[in-house]
């Protein structure tokens, strides 16, 4: 049998997903035995042009990480979709927008102002900000256009499978690779994480489920066994797709929601807000939330119902 053809790509991401691929350790040998990697910018020197020259659907599986932040991301998403039989949204950025997606609380103008002009460590007396086309002596330079709004991969092209997480949990990557290598993939559109929430995997003990105030993790003396919510610390585990084995919780850190929304929920943040408000004992608890988007939408703003902030014109 011919070897399978894989591709890995990173769009707007931090690079953590690439590390996660390597975290499968010796499993990579099984992968190499059964599959050739045609394209992997982080590890191989292949140009976009080479991809463009590949016949359509010549890649069996493309693992695409990163959100769609700029024109280059979008172009590559469309190109890889065209060239791949199966496109996997790999990691939180590709699935839900992740932290990159929090950029949707601003627009290009505001982000540039902040990043290139206002930050205390920036010295930019000329007020230079990125331009997409600049004429210099040697000719015209081009940069990919930076968009106002971050999109997920599925908002840009048709996606076959999703494996969220920041980065995706290694056991689930291995399961996904096994499924691909053995031709046992679930129906199109499935997530390769679990259908249950992180809470289901969490070893911490649930108590009376009544939130009486909101505390930051450093404000409590963790007893290392009681659910964080029962200790008044917000944990997103209840509203987050599991499959990670509650690894953060096992390291005594509350879940911040990288698994994205649960399968039957269109908006992870709204789901957790509804649950949180329902179990908050007093209305005053609500007022103690300082940053609702940062707390409840850390990974999923771009994949939420409203997707972005309304910017006044």
């Amino acid at each position: 049998m011919d070897k399978l053809k894989f591709a890995f790509y990173w769009a707007a991401s931090c690079g953590g997903c690439e590390i996660a691929v390597l975290d499968i350790n010796e499993k990579i040998l099984d992968v190499i035995a059964k599959a050739d990697i045609l394209f992997w910018p982080v590890a191989m020197d292949i140009k976009y042009k080479d991809v463009e020259n590949m016949p359509d659907k010549s890649i069996d599986v493309c693992f695409f990480n990163g959100a769609i932040r700029n024109e280059e991301n979008e172009r590559m998403a469309k190109l890889l979709r065209q060239k791949s039989k199966i496109l996997v949204a790999f990691g939180s950025c590709a699935c839900d927008g992740c932290v990159i997606g929090l950029g949707n609380l601003w627009n290009r103008e505001k982000i540039f102002e902040r990043a290139y002009l206002e930050t205390p460590s920036t010295r930019n007396s000329e007020g230079t900000t990125p331009q997409f086309r600049v004429k210099v002596k040697q000719g015209e330079l081009e940069l990919p256009e930076f968009y106002d709004t971050v999109k997920t991969l599925a908002q840009t092209v048709d996606v076959d499978y999703f494996i969220s997480g920041c980065p995706p949990p290694v056991p689930r990557i291995i399961e996904a690779l096994d499924a691909i290598l053995n031709g046992k993939l679930p129906p199109k559109g499935s997530s390769l994480l679990l259908n249950k929430a992180v809470c289901d995997e969490c070893p911490r003990e649930k108590k009376d489920r009544k939130i009486t105030q909101v505390k930051r993790i450093y404000e409590i003396e963790d007893d290392f066994k009681t659910c964080f919510l029962d200790q008044n610390v917000i944990c997103m585990g209840a509203a987050t797709r599991g499959g990670c084995g509650a690894q953060c919780l096992k390291a005594n850190v509350p879940c911040t929601g990288c698994g994205g929304p649960a399968p039957r929920v269109p908006d992870q943040g709204a789901a957790m807000i509804s649950a949180f408000a329902s179990i908050a004992v007093e209305p005053s608890v609500i007022e103690q939330i300082v940053d609702p988007v940062g707390t409840f939408y850390k990974y999923s703003l771009a994949n939420s119902i409203l997707r972005r902030k309304v910017m006044s014109k």
């Binding site: 709204a270 807000i273 408000a277 908050a280 609500i286 939330i289 910017m311």
Partner: peptide, 19 residues
């Protein structure tokens, strides 16, 4: 009462959404 709390938190959220 629960709806009221959800509405209050949703208002905070809307504010963050620029609505």
């Amino acid at each position: 009462q629960k709806a009221k709390k959800k509405v209050e938190l949703a208002k905070m959220l809307l504010n963050a959404y620029g609505i």
